[in-house]
């Protein structure tokens, strides 16, 4: 198990380096002078030159790169162009909000997806099955920002059960709609996958044996079958991390949720490049860490994987 984790960690290093470098290149080819942008309309050449010096923009590109890497290793993401704020501290406060949203979205989607999938499989071809799978197909194909708007229309403006946009005082009532919205797609995928996996497992010999032993149908489904249908579920969670983080960018924008995704979009509108750079790096690292956890938990759930990862 230890070598499995160590190997995974080792694999991640060149990818992290690639991400960080790609972001540097992307920002280096941006046309326009950041110093001029910071100095604003009234900036005289002397001010601009001073800002250029302060930012290290007068250095050759290779030195800028080493400086950038060194700063990153210290956890320094530079200064925002817009307000005199450190990018790292701005992101730190927003990151908690994004994690809270994404984790709840994941929990909700797993709960919804598993329940729908299990019931559908247990009652195959019943009306519930058809209805659930129809909803799941719609859920897979609906754009997340549109789903969010519809939920707002019905539950916030129509029924008034939950407040509208924003994070408010941070109570769960503000979290429900964004988390449900973000979880629609993974829940739908999960429901479909759980159903097909369960159906496969329910036809296996050992399930028949369990039934023949006189185990109640409820126990067959929940204990014997479900356990074996869990591996694909982890797979789908793994593949959904990227979707969840991308979806978070949109969901945060609709619900004015104060997370990193919205911060990034605002920074893009303001052309605040250090902020964009920081947000992209943080989200990409989050993705890599989450993937690492999924990879490692595979080895935990299915011992076979530990030995033949090569």
């Amino acid at each position: 198990m230890f070598t499995h984790i160590a190997r995974r960690l080792l694999y991640a290093i060149p990818v992290v380096w690639g991400v960080v470098t790609a972001v540097f290149i992307l920002m280096a080819v941006v046309p326009g002078d950041p110093a001029r942008l910071m100095a604003g309309q009234r900036g005289d050449p002397a001010t601009i030159a001073r800002i250029r010096h302060d930012l290290g923009l007068d250095l050759p590109i290779t030195q800028q790169y080493t400086k950038y890497i060194k700063e990153l290793l210290r956890g320094d993401l530079g200064m925002s162009y817009r307000n005199n704020e450190r990018v790292a501290s701005a992101i730190k406060t927003r990151f908690t909000a994004t994690m809270r949203l994404t984790l709840w979205a994941m929990l909700i989607s797993v709960a919804r997806g598993l329940t729908l999938g299990i019931i559908s499989a247990a009652k195959q071809y019943a009306i519930f099955d058809y209805a659930a799978m129809f909803i799941a197909i719609l859920g897979v194909s609906a754009p997340v920002f549109w789903v969010g708007l519809l939920l707002l229309l019905v539950f916030a403006y129509g029924l008034g059960w939950v407040p509208g946009v924003g994070a408010g005082d941070g109570s769960w009532r503000y979290l429900v709609l964004p988390a449900v919205t973000l979880g629609v797609r993974p829940a739908a995928l999960l429901a479909r996958l759980t159903r097909s996996c369960m159906l496969e497992v329910l036809n296996q010999d050992y399930t028949r044996t369990a039934r023949a032993k006189g185990v109640s149908e409820r126990m067959v489904v929940l204990k014997h079958a479900l356990k074996n249908a869990m591996i694909p579920v982890i797979t789908i969670i793994g593949t959904q991390i990227s979707d969840l983080l991308s979806g978070a960018v949109l969901t945060e924008s609709i619900f004015a949720w104060p997370g990193v995704g919205r911060l990034a979009v605002e920074a893009l509108v303001n052309r605040d490049f250090p902020m964009i750079r920081g947000a992209v790096i943080v989200l990409a690292l989050t993705f890599l860490v989450a993937n690492l956890i999924v990879d490692i938990s595979y080895g935990f759930f299915d011992p076979r994987i530990r030995y033949d990862t090569e």
Binding site: S246, V249, L250, G261, A264, F287
Partner: peptide
Amino acid sequence: FAFPFILFVLAV
């Protein structure tokens, strides 16, 4: 793959 797709496209 590590980039959130929409942010990558937005940045470009």
